[in-house]
Nucleic acid binder design. Structure first.
Lengths: 132, 132
DNA sequence: ATATCTGCAAATCATTTGCGAATTG
DNA sequence: CAATTCGCAAATGATTTGCAGATAT
C-alpha cells in the first residue's frame, strides 16, 4: 500500500490557511498567506502538502484555462463561475445528469466532468444595471 | 486600433501544421512537427504565432487540468473528452443550453462555458468488453 | 519606408526534486 | 528508531521577452 501520512505541523497550518481563504488561491497565494503567520514554512512544503492533501481527498485542485493551479477546500462535487469583471470565482452546483447521460448513450464511460463558466457575476450585473 | 497582422511565411507553416494534426498538440509538439520540415523556425516564433492566431480567432487554446496548453484548429463551438486509457482527446458537441439557461435564471451573465469530460472513450470501452 | 516579424538566448513563472537535518508515530 | 517530512537551493518545464537583423505591405 501507499505511504503513511503523518499530521505534521506544517500540513495542519497549510490546510487551516486554505480553509480560511474563500478565494480559491494558487499555491503561491497560499504560500504568501502562510508566511504571514509562519515565516519558517518553505515553499516546497506548500507544494508538497497540496499534492498530498489532494491525494488524500482533503482538497481539490482546479485549473482555469492557463496559469497557475488553484486549490479548494470544498470537496463536494461542484463547478466554478469566474467573473470577468471582479475576478471572483464562485462555486456553482449545476445539474450535469443530462450531459453525462447523453455521453453514456453514445458509448463513452464518463468518470469525471469539469465545467467552467465565465461571464459577469450577479453582484457585478446589478452594479452595471444601477449605473445606467 | 490593434496592430496589423501580416501573413508571414512562418505563420502559414504553423497554421498549416496545426491543421494537419488531429491530436490537439501542445506548442512543443507543434514546434517539433514544424521542425521536421522547416528546421529554421524558432520556438519563440511558434509560441508568438499561436498567441496571434488565437487573438485572430483562427485557432482555439485548450488547457486540460494542469500541464501544457493545447491548440485546436477547430474553432466551431465544441468541448472535449479525454480518454484516460489511450490519451486521445475527442471533440464532442454537447447541448449546453439548459446549463447556461439555469445560470441566467439565477442572475449570472454567461458568455463562455468550458466543459471537459474524462473517462474511457468508445473505442477503448469496446476493447475492454471484448477482452473479458 | 517602416511596422511587423524572426531567431536566438536569456529571463520569468510555476512547480518539482535532491539532500542532509528535523520531526512524528 | 525508522519512516516521513522539512527547508533550502538548484533543477525542470512551459512560456515570454529583449534585441538586432530580416521581411511583408
Amino acid at each position: 500500500m501507499g505511504p503513511l501520512f503523518r499530521k505534521s505541523k506544517q500540513r495542519k497550518i497549510i490546510l487551516g490557511a486554505l480553509s480560511e481563504m474563500k478565494t480559491h488561491p494558487t499555491a503561491q497565494e497560499l504560500f504568501a498567506r502562510v508566511r504571514e503567520t509562519d515565516p519558517e514554512v518553505g515553499q516546497a512544503t506548500v507544494y508538497r502538502n497540496l499534492r498530498i492533501l489532494k491525494e488524500q481527498g482533503e482538497i481539490i485542485e482546479l485549473s482555469f484555462g492557463a496559469g497557475a493551479r488553484r486549490y479548494d477546500r470544498n470537496v463536494a462535487r461542484h463547478e466554478h463561475f469566474t467573473c470577468r469583471r471582479c475576478g471572483t470565482i464562485e462555486d456553482i452546483y449545476p445539474d450535469t445528469r443530462s450531459l453525462t447521460g447523453s455521453l453514456h448513450k453514445k458509448g463513452y464511460r464518463v468518470d469525471e466532468m469539469k465545467i467552467e463558466a465565465f461571464g459577469v457575476c450577479r453582484k457585478c450585473a446589478k452594479k452595471i444595471k444601477s449605473n445606467r
